[in-house]
Design a protein around this nucleic acid. Structure first.
Length: 301
DNA sequence: GGTAGACCTGGACGC
DNA sequence: GCGTCCAGGTCTACC
């Protein structure tokens, strides 16, 4: 007999909109069902692995979330599950109103939350697997990491035990093999301390610099990790950003010139600049392709 | 500090 | 079916 857990989200939270707000909702072990509007994923808790389905049956802002698990949970595991879901769905984001004051374009729709992973380490690995590849390769890498290493997504301990050759040949991560194992070993040894990165009392600039020192993390990945940590004052500039600068914002010139103009443009949003940029970009994707919650798992942006 | 080239995978394309 | 080209961000060597 499985467990059911109920969570009361913030009054503006809408599951389908706030899960399908960043590409990670299509990366294993996440599975979004456009038919049932539910997110299913495998999680690892202290009592073992389980599969959980998250639904918002009333499909209205602020309506209760129902978590359905395929096995019974202890009281401690219920707390663990709630904490992981809270991180993924950003239920504890206290900056939504402040963001809408700075960028009122999204106040009516309520967009502000950007989906992420239940753990810092999963976000780190997903970010590395999204560098220097097209999206279908990122999808494949994450699927195979879950198939080959751990169904609930590899923990640092599980990944640190793997051989580079295994990751390369069976997970298709290519030259990222050594970097991923280095990151895992650093997380196991404590050299990468997730709690330190998550601690909002540490200054953004210090956290950003620390991210840039990690293997496989360059300017784009560090910017992306900053937003995944809830620090939105940094942009994550990639080829999509340059394309957006040209097509949506009308900037011209070389890539470098467009990047400069993009950076200058989003200055006005201060500590919220990534959200303003990302929601604008995502909104354009949805104008072309329909709401993200209708996209099939193999949807190409 | 700036830049060129290597690193891998998978998709598109031409034959 | 095969070979070639290209896109994608990080890292290193070099100027």
């Amino acid at each position: 007999m499985g467990s059911r857990v109920s969570i009361t989200p913030p009054g503006d939270f809408l599951l389908k909109r706030d899960v399908c707000s960043y590409g990670y909702f299509h990366l294993a072990p996440n599975h979004w069902s456009p038919e049932s509007l539910t997110l299913t994923r495998v999680l690892s808790l202290s009592g073992g692995v389980l599969t959980m389905t998250i639904a918002q049956p009333d499909d209205k802002k602020g309506a209760a979330l129902q978590l359905k698990c395929d096995r019974a949970l202890s009281a401690g595991e219920r707390r663990e599950a709630k904490a992981l879901v809270t991180r993924m769905l950003r239920l504890d984001d206290e900056g939504v109103a402040a963001f809408h004051r700075v960028d009122a374009r999204w106040k009516k729709s309520g967009r502000a939350r950007i989906f992420r992973s239940p753990t810092f380490f999963e976000d780190l690995v997903k970010t590395v697997t999204s560098c220097n590849v097209t999206w279908p390769s990122t999808v494949n890498m994450n699927r195979r990491l879950c198939e080959v290493v751990a169904p609930a997504f590899p923990s640092p301990e599980q990944l640190a035990r793997k051989r580079a050759q295994t990751l390369r040949s069976r997970c298709g991560v290519g030259y990222r093999d050594v970097r991923l194992i280095q990151l895992a070993k650093m997380a196991v040894s404590g050299e990468i301390d997730a709690a330190w990165f998550e601690d909002s009392s540490n200054p953004d600039e210090v956290v950003h610099k620390a991210l840039l020192k990690l293997p496989g993390i360059g300017p784009y990945a560090a910017g992306n990790m900053m937003q995944l940590l809830g620090r939105y004052g940094f942009l994550a500039i990639d080829t999509e950003t340059i394309k957006h600068g040209r097509e949506a914002l009308g900037f011209e010139g070389t890539d470098r010139e467009v990047e400069k103009q993009v950076r200058a443009h989003y200055e006005q949003f201060g500590e919220h600049r990534f959200r303003s940029y990302w929601i604008e970009l995502w909104d354009r994707y949805e104008q072309k392709n329909g709401p993200a919650w209708t996209w099939p798992p193999k949807h190409k942006l």
